[in-house]
Amino acid sequence: KELVLALYDYQEKSPREVTMKKGDILTLLNSTNKDWWKVEVNGRQGAVPAAYVKKL
């Protein structure tokens, strides 16, 4: 499985998103959308802005 690093804090704004903190390591589930990537963090799945994460 592919991992990404959170470059910034992000507070979810809808139920389809997830909150992450700078430095979090997230499991990347889907990166086909260039703006929003689906990730899993702390057992929750949701979208985060692609510009806020970097593939490891």
Rank of each mutant, 00 (worst) to 15 (best):
N30R: 07
L26D: 01
E40P: 00
V41G: 08
Y52T: 10
L29Q: 03
L26R: 00
E12P: 14
V48M: 01
A47L: 15
V48G: 02
V39E: 00
T19F: 05
V18H: 03
E17L: 06
K13W: 05
V18A: 05
Q11I: 14
K34D: 12
K55L: 14
W36R: 02
E12S: 15
Y10A: 00
A47Y: 15
G23T: 01
I25L: 09
V18C: 07
S31K: 09
T19K: 03
V39S: 00
L5M: 14
V41S: 13
P49Y: 03
T32H: 12
E17D: 05
N42K: 10
S14W: 06
V39Q: 01
K54W: 07
K38T: 15
K1N: 11
K21F: 10
E17N: 05
D35T: 13
S14T: 12
T32C: 13
T27R: 11
S31Y: 09
D24E: 11
Y8L: 11
K21W: 08
A51V: 09
Q45K: 10
D9E: 05
G46P: 00
L56N: 03
L26G: 09
T19R: 06
A50S: 13
V48F: 02
P49F: 03
A51G: 13
K13Y: 06
T27W: 13
K55T: 09
Q11V: 14
G43A: 05
T32Q: 12
T32I: 12
K34H: 12
T19D: 04
R16P: 06
V41W: 08
T19W: 04
L3A: 07
G43I: 02
K21G: 04
K38A: 12
S14P: 05
V48I: 09
Y52S: 14
L3V: 09
L29M: 08
M20V: 11
L7E: 04
A50C: 08
Y52Q: 07
K38Y: 15
R44F: 07
G43R: 04
L29W: 05
N42F: 07
Q45C: 12
S31F: 07
G46I: 10
L26P: 00
T32P: 04
P49W: 03
L29R: 04
K21V: 09
K34L: 10
Y8C: 15
K55I: 14
L29F: 05
S31V: 08
V18Q: 03
